[in-house]
Design a protein around this nucleic acid. Structure first.
Lengths: 149, 149
DNA sequence: ATCGATTGCGCAATCC
DNA sequence: GGGATTGCGCAATCGA
């Protein structure tokens, strides 16, 4: 009775050598039955022992079982990897958005300032005109130009 | 996706924290601990080999072992819940940031337009002034509203 | 109705 | 020593 080849060679992400010896390592062969098996004397606990349902191929010894398991394990691994990747992407997106946010705010600040200056200028002019100033008092409005960005 | 609609049809839906019919990879089918395993007829030391390996307190039957396991299980659960929460928060943050970004961009657009208008106005005035110095050609524009925000 | 993808859970190793 | 993380396998369920 050959045992299931356990190749848990999971190299830790951090280089931790995980040995991960599951129960099999303890040389404990799995017991054929799934039912918890009432503990000797004690009355039957709640154990819906239904093994002969539609799971005749549920035998852990079965070749097919092992095959299914291995496949599922791979799928699980894949799924989890994907999940992690997604989470990471999301995190990255947050940073990206934050950056853009700052950029936008800076721009707003700039625009606001520019606008403020122009408005002041405008008001000043209006006053001058309203005051009915001298003929030619163009009042050089130090047109401080701004080059924008 | 994270619909935690667990409809785990574990037998005994009501009451009692039933541990799933795990049977686990351990292959070691312990007494179903649907309750602190009555010390009474607990017996059934399936463990074929003695407490091999290092720790002597590694007995799966050990009370302390079970206690540690249960505690760890709780910790795991807690940790995972936390993790999920965090992920969700991050996702939410993304949405929030996206919204804010849109808002900011709209604002930028508005400010830009305002600025453009004012600049045009100034240019017009400048032209008027340069063209000739009309005594009183005030006739300034009709005070554009713009309350700004 | 087969099979991959998800998900909850327990276990063990590791981190702190 | 003890909770918090993390990788992993199992089983149930979803989904195409």
């Amino acid at each position: 009775m050959s045992k299931i080849s356990q190749q848990n060679s999971t190299p830790g992400v951090n280089g931790i050598s995980v040995i991960h010896t599951q129960a099999q390592a303890s040389g404990l062969q799995q017991v054929p039955q799934l039912v918890p098996a009432g503990p000797g004397g004690g009355g039957k606990a709640v154990a819906p022992s239904k093994q002969s349902k539609k799971s005749l191929s549920m035998d852990r010894n079965s070749d097919e079982y092992r095959q299914r398991r291995e496949r599922n394990n791979m799928a699980v691994k894949k799924s989890r990897l994907k999940s992690k990747q997604k989470a990471q992407d999301t995190l990255q997106r947050v940073n990206q958005l934050k950056e853009e946010n700052e950029r936008l705010e800076a721009k707003i600040k700039l625009l606001t300032k520019e606008l403020s200056v122009l408005k002041d200028l405008f008001l000043e002019h209006a006053h001058n005109l309203a005051d009915n100033v001298q003929p030619i008092s163009t009042e050089n409005t130090t047109e401080s130009d701004n080059a924008g960005q």
